[in-house]
């Protein structure tokens, strides 16, 4: 287990350093500007500043198991304000991907379900189809909660905002070949 988590740390650092300006995470001065700027830090187990401190202390596992990672909405407030120039939103994306790939951390399950279903739809059709995404999301999380959304869905449908049929792009086969190629040859 210890070896495995050490490996994961290596993987994470390698990925992080491959992001433009990813190495700047080492220049964090723990000022907390990110935490103060973050619109969702009030709901997080660890604030963005604490996440960087924990990462530098080698606590990747704890970071991935916290609810923080999937509470990042990509608003980029932290990234534009960080005096050290750390692209923290990109760090959070990397943590999301790492957790999903290695199946670590499930406290933010609904968010990961939404993202996974989104990926499935886009891989198949080339585009998202919102009504299908919402349906799949509730099927895989809490179908009963879908009932509470029913009045809203009806209002949307009535206005033509819930088309039943999605669109599949003409180049779907070509796109699948591209995805297979990056899967096979991608260096990251």
């Amino acid at each position: 287990m210890a070896v495995a988590s050490l490996d994961l740390r290596e993987v994470f650092l390698q990925k992080l350093y491959s992001i433009p300006n990813g190495r700047k995470v080492n220049e964090c001065i723990q000022c907390g500007t990110c935490s103060a700027s973050c619109p969702t830090s009030h709901a997080m187990d660890y604030s963005p500043r604490e996440i960087i401190a924990a990462l530098r202390a080698g606590m990747l596992d704890r970071v991935l198991r916290s609810n923080t990672v999937w509470l990042c909405s990509s608003c980029y407030s932290c990234s534009v304000r960080c005096p050290a120039g750390i692209p923290f939103t990109d760090v959070m994306y990397e943590l999301k991907r790492l957790g999903v790939k290695h199946r670590i951390g499930d406290k933010g399950a609904p968010n990961t379900v939404m993202a996974r279903e989104f990926v499935h739809l886009v891989d198949r059709r080339g585009r998202n189809h919102e009504p299908a995404l919402i349906r799949q999301y509730f099927l895989h999380t809490n179908p009963l909660r879908a009932l509470r959304q029913f009045p809203l869905a009806l209002r949307l449908w009535w206005r033509g905002r819930m088309p039943l049929r999605g669109h599949t792009i003409k180049g779907a086969a070509g796109l699948r070949r591209m995805m297979a190629a990056i899967e096979e040859n991608g260096s990251k």
Partner: peptide
Amino acid sequence: DWNCCGATAYVAIREE
């Protein structure tokens, strides 16, 4: 024949 941009919900799962 445009396709999904690679949205926030997608890049959170697969980067490249």
